[in-house]
Protein backbone atom coordinates (compact mmCIF):
# COMPACT_ATOMS: atom_id res chain seq x y z
CA UNK A 1 0.00 0.00 0.00
CA UNK A 2 1.43 3.31 -1.03
CA UNK A 3 1.13 6.32 1.24
CA UNK A 4 -1.18 9.03 -0.01
CA UNK A 5 -3.05 6.94 -2.56
CA UNK A 6 -6.08 5.87 -0.58
CA UNK A 7 -8.76 4.45 -2.87
CA UNK A 8 -12.34 5.32 -2.22
CA UNK A 9 -13.96 3.17 -4.87
CA UNK A 10 -13.41 -0.29 -6.30
CA UNK A 11 -13.07 1.34 -9.68
CA UNK A 12 -10.12 3.41 -8.50
CA UNK A 13 -8.63 0.31 -6.92
CA UNK A 14 -8.79 -1.55 -10.20
CA UNK A 15 -7.46 1.23 -12.40
CA UNK A 16 -4.36 0.58 -14.51
CA UNK A 17 -2.44 3.61 -13.31
CA UNK A 18 -2.66 4.27 -9.62
CA UNK A 19 -0.20 7.07 -8.94
CA UNK A 20 0.54 10.47 -10.37
CA UNK A 21 4.19 9.69 -11.28
CA UNK A 22 2.95 6.63 -13.18
CA UNK A 23 0.66 8.80 -15.27
CA UNK A 24 3.38 11.33 -15.88
CA UNK A 25 5.90 8.73 -16.94
CA UNK A 26 3.42 7.02 -19.21
CA UNK A 27 2.57 10.34 -20.83
CA UNK A 28 6.27 11.02 -21.38
CA UNK A 29 6.66 7.52 -22.83
CA UNK A 30 3.68 7.99 -25.15
CA UNK A 31 5.03 11.36 -26.29
CA UNK A 32 8.44 9.85 -26.97
CA UNK A 33 6.85 7.08 -29.03
CA UNK A 34 5.22 9.75 -31.18
CA UNK A 35 8.43 11.77 -31.46
CA UNK A 36 10.74 8.81 -32.03
CA UNK A 37 10.38 8.30 -35.79
CA UNK A 38 11.23 11.96 -36.38
CA UNK A 39 14.56 11.79 -34.58
CA UNK A 40 16.09 8.38 -35.27
CA UNK A 41 17.56 6.95 -38.47
CA UNK A 42 16.31 3.96 -40.47
CA UNK A 43 18.36 1.48 -38.47
CA UNK A 44 16.78 2.42 -35.15
CA UNK A 45 13.38 2.76 -36.75
CA UNK A 46 13.73 -0.76 -38.13
CA UNK A 47 14.71 -2.04 -34.70
CA UNK A 48 11.83 -0.18 -33.05
CA UNK A 49 9.34 -1.77 -35.42
CA UNK A 50 10.92 -5.18 -34.85
CA UNK A 51 10.78 -4.63 -31.10
CA UNK A 52 7.11 -3.64 -31.38
CA UNK A 53 6.28 -6.83 -33.27
CA UNK A 54 8.18 -8.92 -30.74
CA UNK A 55 6.46 -7.10 -27.87
CA UNK A 56 3.06 -7.97 -29.35
CA UNK A 57 4.04 -11.63 -29.74
CA UNK A 58 5.69 -11.85 -26.32
CA UNK A 59 2.66 -10.25 -24.65
CA UNK A 60 0.53 -12.98 -26.20
CA UNK A 61 2.81 -15.70 -24.91
CA UNK A 62 2.86 -13.98 -21.52
CA UNK A 63 -0.92 -14.24 -21.32
CA UNK A 64 -0.66 -17.97 -21.91
CA UNK A 65 2.52 -18.88 -20.06
CA UNK A 66 3.03 -16.06 -17.59
CA UNK A 67 -0.58 -15.51 -16.55
CA UNK A 68 -2.26 -18.88 -17.19
CA UNK A 69 0.75 -21.10 -16.49
CA UNK A 70 0.49 -23.07 -19.74
CA UNK A 71 3.89 -23.53 -21.37
CA UNK A 72 3.90 -23.22 -25.13
CA UNK A 73 6.74 -23.72 -27.56
CA UNK A 74 4.48 -23.36 -30.56
CA UNK A 75 4.04 -19.62 -30.45
CA UNK A 76 6.17 -19.00 -33.54
CA UNK A 77 3.98 -21.37 -35.54
CA UNK A 78 0.94 -19.23 -34.70
CA UNK A 79 2.86 -16.18 -35.81
CA UNK A 80 3.51 -18.03 -39.06
CA UNK A 81 -0.21 -18.79 -39.41
CA UNK A 82 -0.92 -15.08 -39.02
CA UNK A 83 1.77 -14.13 -41.50
CA UNK A 84 0.50 -16.63 -44.08
CA UNK A 85 -3.07 -15.45 -43.57
CA UNK A 86 -2.06 -11.86 -44.28
CA UNK A 87 0.05 -12.96 -47.24
CA UNK A 88 -2.76 -15.02 -48.73
CA UNK A 89 -5.45 -12.38 -48.20
CA UNK A 90 -3.24 -9.59 -49.48
CA UNK A 91 -2.22 -11.46 -52.65
CA UNK A 92 -5.53 -13.19 -53.41
CA UNK A 93 -8.31 -10.94 -52.16
CA UNK A 94 -6.57 -7.62 -51.64
CA UNK A 95 -8.70 -6.85 -48.59
CA UNK A 96 -7.79 -3.82 -46.43
CA UNK A 97 -4.86 -4.33 -44.07
CA UNK A 98 -6.90 -4.09 -40.88
CA UNK A 99 -9.25 -6.81 -42.09
CA UNK A 100 -6.23 -8.96 -42.94
CA UNK A 101 -4.62 -8.36 -39.56
CA UNK A 102 -7.77 -9.23 -37.63
CA UNK A 103 -8.31 -12.26 -39.85
CA UNK A 104 -4.70 -13.28 -39.13
CA UNK A 105 -5.47 -13.09 -35.42
CA UNK A 106 -8.74 -15.00 -35.77
CA UNK A 107 -7.32 -17.84 -37.90
CA UNK A 108 -4.43 -18.22 -35.46
CA UNK A 109 -6.89 -18.13 -32.54
CA UNK A 110 -9.00 -20.89 -34.09
CA UNK A 111 -5.91 -23.06 -34.52
CA UNK A 112 -4.82 -22.12 -31.01
CA UNK A 113 -8.04 -23.59 -29.61
CA UNK A 114 -7.30 -26.82 -31.47
CA UNK A 115 -3.73 -26.98 -30.25
CA UNK A 116 -4.83 -26.04 -26.73
CA UNK A 117 -7.14 -29.04 -26.43
CA UNK A 118 -4.50 -31.30 -24.87
CA UNK A 119 -3.85 -28.65 -22.21
CA UNK A 120 -6.67 -30.00 -20.06
CA UNK A 121 -4.89 -33.32 -19.75
CA UNK A 122 -1.22 -32.40 -19.95
CA UNK A 123 0.78 -29.72 -18.22
CA UNK A 124 4.29 -28.39 -17.95
CA UNK A 125 6.91 -30.04 -20.11
CA UNK A 126 4.34 -32.41 -21.60
CA UNK A 127 2.32 -29.48 -22.89
CA UNK A 128 5.52 -27.88 -24.21
CA UNK A 129 6.20 -31.01 -26.25
CA UNK A 130 2.58 -31.15 -27.44
CA UNK A 131 2.85 -27.57 -28.69
CA UNK A 132 6.17 -28.29 -30.40
CA UNK A 133 4.49 -31.23 -32.14
CA UNK A 134 1.73 -28.92 -33.30
CA UNK A 135 4.25 -26.49 -34.69
CA UNK A 136 5.91 -29.29 -36.67
CA UNK A 137 2.55 -30.27 -38.13
CA UNK A 138 1.93 -26.66 -39.10
CA UNK A 139 5.40 -26.46 -40.66
CA UNK A 140 4.57 -29.52 -42.74
CA UNK A 141 1.40 -27.79 -43.92
CA UNK A 142 3.33 -24.63 -44.86
CA UNK A 143 5.70 -26.65 -47.04
CA UNK A 144 3.15 -28.94 -48.64
CA UNK A 145 -0.03 -26.89 -49.11
CA UNK A 146 1.56 -25.27 -52.15
CA UNK A 147 -1.66 -23.75 -53.47
CA UNK A 148 -2.15 -21.65 -50.35
CA UNK A 149 1.32 -21.18 -48.90
CA UNK A 150 3.50 -21.13 -52.01
CA UNK A 151 5.42 -24.19 -50.82
CA UNK A 152 9.11 -23.94 -49.99
CA UNK A 153 9.58 -20.55 -51.67
CA UNK A 154 6.69 -18.98 -49.76
CA UNK A 155 4.77 -15.85 -50.70
CA UNK A 156 6.00 -12.38 -51.57
CA UNK A 157 3.65 -9.78 -50.15
CA UNK A 158 2.78 -6.45 -51.77
CA UNK A 159 3.29 -3.40 -49.56
CA UNK A 160 0.72 -2.44 -46.97
CA UNK A 161 -1.69 0.04 -48.54
CA UNK A 162 -3.80 2.66 -46.81
CA UNK A 163 -6.14 4.79 -48.92
CA UNK A 164 -4.13 3.95 -52.01
CA UNK A 165 -0.82 4.96 -50.44
CA UNK A 166 1.81 2.24 -50.26
CA UNK A 167 3.69 2.08 -47.00
CA UNK A 168 7.17 0.97 -47.95
CA UNK A 169 9.42 2.92 -45.60
CA UNK A 170 10.03 2.04 -41.97
CA UNK A 171 8.83 5.53 -41.09
CA UNK A 172 5.40 4.91 -42.59
CA UNK A 173 5.13 1.33 -41.33
CA UNK A 174 5.91 2.55 -37.82
CA UNK A 175 2.60 4.40 -37.75
CA UNK A 176 0.77 1.12 -38.28
CA UNK A 177 2.90 -1.26 -36.28
CA UNK A 178 3.36 0.84 -33.16
CA UNK A 179 -0.31 1.82 -32.64
CA UNK A 180 -1.45 -1.76 -33.20
CA UNK A 181 1.10 -2.99 -30.67
CA UNK A 182 0.11 -0.32 -28.16
CA UNK A 183 -3.54 -1.32 -28.54
CA UNK A 184 -2.67 -4.98 -28.08
CA UNK A 185 -0.62 -4.30 -24.96
CA UNK A 186 -3.38 -2.08 -23.55
CA UNK A 187 -5.86 -4.85 -24.28
CA UNK A 188 -3.71 -7.36 -22.42
CA UNK A 189 -3.29 -5.02 -19.45
CA UNK A 190 -7.03 -4.52 -19.27
CA UNK A 191 -7.71 -8.23 -19.65
CA UNK A 192 -6.37 -8.78 -16.16
CA UNK A 193 -8.84 -6.34 -14.68
CA UNK A 194 -11.67 -8.60 -15.82
CA UNK A 195 -13.08 -11.88 -14.57
CA UNK A 196 -11.46 -13.72 -17.47
CA UNK A 197 -7.98 -12.47 -16.68
CA UNK A 198 -8.34 -13.21 -13.00
CA UNK A 199 -9.57 -16.69 -13.86
CA UNK A 200 -6.36 -17.21 -15.85
CA UNK A 201 -4.29 -16.22 -12.85
CA UNK A 202 -6.31 -18.54 -10.61
CA UNK A 203 -5.64 -21.41 -13.02
CA UNK A 204 -1.95 -20.64 -13.01
CA UNK A 205 -1.73 -20.54 -9.24
CA UNK A 206 -3.60 -23.81 -8.72
CA UNK A 207 -5.89 -25.23 -11.35
CA UNK A 208 -7.80 -27.56 -9.01
CA UNK A 209 -8.56 -24.70 -6.63
CA UNK A 210 -9.64 -22.63 -9.59
CA UNK A 211 -12.10 -25.32 -10.58
CA UNK A 212 -13.42 -25.46 -7.04
CA UNK A 213 -13.96 -21.71 -7.26
CA UNK A 214 -16.24 -22.33 -10.23
CA UNK A 215 -13.90 -21.66 -13.12
CA UNK A 216 -14.53 -24.12 -15.97
CA UNK A 217 -10.96 -25.17 -16.74
CA UNK A 218 -11.38 -26.31 -20.32
CA UNK A 219 -13.17 -23.17 -21.39
CA UNK A 220 -10.69 -20.82 -19.75
CA UNK A 221 -7.60 -22.71 -20.80
CA UNK A 222 -8.83 -22.75 -24.38
CA UNK A 223 -9.71 -19.09 -24.08
CA UNK A 224 -6.17 -18.36 -22.93
CA UNK A 225 -4.79 -20.35 -25.85
CA UNK A 226 -7.03 -18.55 -28.31
CA UNK A 227 -6.17 -15.09 -26.97
CA UNK A 228 -2.45 -15.86 -26.97
CA UNK A 229 -2.69 -17.23 -30.50
CA UNK A 230 -4.70 -14.21 -31.58
CA UNK A 231 -1.82 -12.03 -30.38
CA UNK A 232 0.70 -14.25 -32.14
CA UNK A 233 -1.37 -14.15 -35.33
CA UNK A 234 -1.62 -10.38 -35.27
CA UNK A 235 2.11 -10.08 -34.57
CA UNK A 236 2.79 -12.49 -37.44
CA UNK A 237 0.57 -10.38 -39.66
CA UNK A 238 2.52 -7.25 -38.78
CA UNK A 239 5.71 -9.22 -39.41
CA UNK A 240 4.45 -10.17 -42.87
CA UNK A 241 3.80 -6.54 -43.78
CA UNK A 242 7.14 -5.58 -42.34
CA UNK A 243 9.35 -8.18 -44.06
CA UNK A 244 7.16 -8.64 -47.15
CA UNK A 245 8.02 -12.32 -47.66
CA UNK A 246 6.89 -15.38 -45.75
CA UNK A 247 8.47 -18.80 -46.16
CA UNK A 248 8.23 -21.96 -44.04
CA UNK A 249 11.61 -20.99 -42.61
CA UNK A 250 10.53 -17.53 -41.48
CA UNK A 251 9.35 -18.74 -38.07
CA UNK A 252 11.62 -21.53 -36.83
CA UNK A 253 11.32 -23.21 -33.46
CA UNK A 254 14.05 -20.84 -32.32
CA UNK A 255 11.58 -17.96 -32.52
CA UNK A 256 9.32 -19.74 -30.01
CA UNK A 257 12.29 -20.18 -27.69
CA UNK A 258 13.26 -16.54 -28.25
CA UNK A 259 9.79 -15.42 -27.13
CA UNK A 260 9.78 -17.74 -24.15
CA UNK A 261 13.21 -16.44 -23.15
CA UNK A 262 11.91 -12.89 -23.57
CA UNK A 263 9.09 -13.32 -21.08
CA UNK A 264 11.29 -15.21 -18.63
CA UNK A 265 14.01 -12.56 -18.77
CA UNK A 266 11.45 -9.78 -18.68
CA UNK A 267 9.33 -11.22 -15.93
CA UNK A 268 6.54 -13.75 -16.39
CA UNK A 269 3.10 -12.75 -15.33
CA UNK A 270 3.51 -9.00 -15.68
CA UNK A 271 2.63 -6.99 -18.76
CA UNK A 272 5.71 -4.85 -18.25
CA UNK A 273 7.82 -8.01 -18.14
CA UNK A 274 6.73 -9.11 -21.60
CA UNK A 275 7.56 -5.69 -22.98
CA UNK A 276 10.94 -5.35 -21.29
CA UNK A 277 11.90 -8.91 -22.18
CA UNK A 278 11.13 -8.42 -25.86
CA UNK A 279 12.98 -5.11 -25.88
CA UNK A 280 16.00 -6.64 -24.16
CA UNK A 281 16.15 -9.76 -26.33
CA UNK A 282 15.83 -7.76 -29.54
CA UNK A 283 18.06 -4.83 -28.70
CA UNK A 284 20.82 -6.34 -26.57
CA UNK A 285 22.55 -8.15 -29.45
CA UNK A 286 22.32 -4.96 -31.51
CA UNK A 287 23.74 -2.78 -28.73
CA UNK A 288 26.56 -5.25 -28.35
CA UNK A 289 27.45 -4.47 -31.98
CA UNK A 290 28.57 -1.08 -30.75
CA UNK A 291 30.79 -2.84 -28.22
CA UNK A 292 32.42 -4.67 -31.13
CA UNK A 293 32.68 -1.39 -33.02
CA UNK A 294 34.43 0.37 -30.13
CA UNK A 295 36.96 -2.39 -29.64
CA UNK A 296 37.51 -2.79 -33.39
CA UNK A 297 40.33 -0.23 -33.73
CA UNK A 298 42.27 -2.04 -31.01
CA UNK A 299 41.97 -5.57 -32.41
CA UNK A 300 43.04 -6.55 -35.90
CA UNK A 301 40.32 -8.37 -37.87
CA UNK A 302 37.85 -7.52 -35.10
CA UNK A 303 34.71 -8.38 -37.08
CA UNK A 304 35.63 -12.02 -37.43
CA UNK A 305 37.15 -12.40 -33.97
CA UNK A 306 34.66 -10.49 -31.86
CA UNK A 307 31.39 -11.58 -33.44
CA UNK A 308 31.35 -14.90 -31.57
CA UNK A 309 32.26 -13.01 -28.38
CA UNK A 310 29.19 -10.87 -28.90
CA UNK A 311 27.00 -13.99 -28.94
CA UNK A 312 28.71 -15.28 -25.79
CA UNK A 313 28.23 -11.95 -23.98
CA UNK A 314 24.55 -11.93 -24.95
CA UNK A 315 24.17 -15.44 -23.53
CA UNK A 316 26.03 -14.46 -20.37
CA UNK A 317 23.79 -11.42 -19.93
CA UNK A 318 20.70 -13.65 -20.07
CA UNK A 319 22.17 -16.07 -17.54
CA UNK A 320 23.23 -13.12 -15.37
CA UNK A 321 19.75 -11.64 -15.34
CA UNK A 322 18.23 -15.02 -14.51
CA UNK A 323 20.59 -15.47 -11.56
CA UNK A 324 20.57 -11.94 -10.16
CA UNK A 325 17.02 -11.00 -11.05
CA UNK A 326 14.95 -14.17 -11.20
CA UNK A 327 11.77 -12.08 -11.14
CA UNK A 328 12.79 -10.54 -14.41
CA UNK A 329 13.61 -7.07 -15.64
CA UNK A 330 10.17 -5.84 -14.57
CA UNK A 331 11.26 -6.34 -10.97
CA UNK A 332 14.11 -3.88 -11.48
CA UNK A 333 11.59 -1.24 -12.49
CA UNK A 334 9.52 -2.07 -9.43
CA UNK A 335 12.57 -1.69 -7.24
CA UNK A 336 13.35 1.69 -8.75
CA UNK A 337 9.74 2.73 -8.12
CA UNK A 338 9.95 1.61 -4.50
CA UNK A 339 13.17 3.53 -4.09
CA UNK A 340 11.76 6.80 -5.34
CA UNK A 341 8.46 6.38 -3.50
CA UNK A 342 10.11 7.27 -0.20
CA UNK A 343 12.94 9.30 -1.59
CA UNK A 344 14.62 11.36 -0.15
CA UNK A 345 13.43 10.29 3.29
CA UNK A 346 14.64 6.73 2.97
CA UNK A 347 17.08 5.37 0.47
Amino acid sequence: MIIGTAKETYRADESLLTTQPQRVWLAIFAASLVALPFVVNDYWLYLTCLVAINVAAATGLNILTGFTGLVSLGHAAFMAVGAYTVAWLETNLGTPFWVNLIAAGLVAAALGILVGLPSLKVKGLYLAIATIAASFILHFCFVHFDGITGGATGINIPPLTIFGAELTTYFSLYWVIMPVTVLMVLGAANLFRTRIGRAFIAIRDRDISAEVLGIPLLRYKLMSFSIASFYAGMAGGLWAYFFRVVTPESFPLLTSIFLLAAIIVGGMGTILGGILGAVFMTLAPELLRYGVEWISPLVPNAGALLSPVRTVVFGALIVGFLIFEPQGLAEIIQRIRRFFRLWPFRT
Binding site: N41, D42, Y46, L50, P285, R310
Partner: peptide
Protein backbone atom coordinates in the same frame (compact mmCIF):
# COMPACT_ATOMS: atom_id res chain seq x y z
CA UNK B 1 32.01 -2.62 -44.11
CA UNK B 2 30.33 -5.69 -42.68
CA UNK B 3 28.77 -7.04 -39.53
CA UNK B 4 27.75 -10.38 -38.17
CA UNK B 5 24.22 -11.65 -38.78
CA UNK B 6 24.29 -15.06 -37.11
CA UNK B 7 22.60 -16.21 -40.37
CA UNK B 8 19.27 -14.80 -39.18
CA UNK B 9 17.17 -12.77 -41.59
CA UNK B 10 16.04 -10.14 -39.07
CA UNK B 11 19.65 -9.52 -38.04
CA UNK B 12 20.78 -9.39 -41.67
CA UNK B 13 18.19 -6.69 -42.30
CA UNK B 14 19.28 -4.88 -39.12
CA UNK B 15 22.90 -4.92 -40.33
CA UNK B 16 21.78 -3.67 -43.74
CA UNK B 17 19.92 -0.76 -42.15
CA UNK B 18 22.75 0.01 -39.77
CA UNK B 19 25.40 0.06 -42.48
CA UNK B 20 23.30 1.98 -44.98
CA UNK B 21 22.52 4.65 -42.40
CA UNK B 22 26.20 4.97 -41.51
Amino acid sequence: AYEDTGYKVDQSVAVFNKLTSQ
